[in-house]
Design a binder for these strands. Structure first.
Lengths: 135, 135
DNA sequence: TTGCATCCGGTACCTGGGTACAGGCTTACC
DNA sequence: GGTAAGCCTGTACCCAGGTACCGGATGCAA
């Protein structure tokens, strides 16, 4: 009966490895539900909030923006609208693969430039065998 | 004698495929040298400015920040201090390769999550075979 | 009950790469 | 010489993901 008191924002922030300000920020962004309050207005979080923050951070590490994470969390329950997690994960995977392809081209160009041994941007751009991706 | 008049900012911007405001922004950031002016104070760019802008855009596409591009351009001539282009390109290549490695891990995780077929973040996080990168 | 840590809301600031707007000047063409 | 397009400076705003600061209120222990 009395063990449902909950955590203060500082405790939750420490437990989740997050700045206390970030909790209020996430609340504004719709990532954290509004928690109960003490009589004086201080937030009281349930223990599951730690897990929720871990999930948010994990999704972020997978490349989802905070807005996308908020949608993923809000889509729970009423799956009438809103794409499911797997559909969004598929889309995100495509994005990540495209980004990898971009970066691979960039890395190849950098290696070519290194092999060409050019050591000055402007003079290099003037020479015909300059590998810089000029338009 | 009279062909050295130069380009107006709007002409240069159009020739380089850039917003006119961006020219002033680059000037403030030290990427474009301050050009000559008409008697009335309007900027007059030399024709090489187009090439310079192309070089800036190319370096940006290779992953250099504007600050790094500014340093690369300023390092020209007095190569006493400041790393040469090749040294910086090597460092940038390492950065890009590291980023590719990160994204590859992310893509693998997304594929694993898709294969596991989990369709809800919170319930998935509660199950032991959840592939989410929880801390 | 006093003292100190913590928390509150609101607002401003940060990075990076620009873009937009306001109010006034210059230039170019007819 | 009139008019319109273009340019000038300065300032504010945009995106994301937070972080910092302020003055005041609360919570908790001695």
């Amino acid at each position: 009966m009395t063990d449902a008191v909950g955590m203060r924002s500082g405790q939750l922030a420490a437990a989740a490895g997050v700045n206390p300000q970030t909790l209020r920020y996430y609340e504004r962004r719709g990532l954290l539900p509004e928690p109960r309050r003490t009589a004086g207005g201080h937030r009281l979080y349930p223990p599951q909030a730690v897990t929720l923050l871990h999930v948010i951070k994990a999704a972020q590490r997978l490349g989802f923006t905070l807005e996308e994470v908020a949608e993923l969390l809000q889509a729970r329950g009423h799956r009438r609208h809103a794409a499911g997690l797997s559909e969004r994960a598929r889309a995100k995977l495509a994005e990540v693969e495209a980004r990898i392809a971009d970066l691979t081209v960039i890395a190849d160009t950098l290696r070519t430039a290194l092999a060409a041994g050019c050591d000055d941007l402007i003079t290099c751009a003037g020479e015909p065998r300059c590998p810089l991706p000029l338009p």
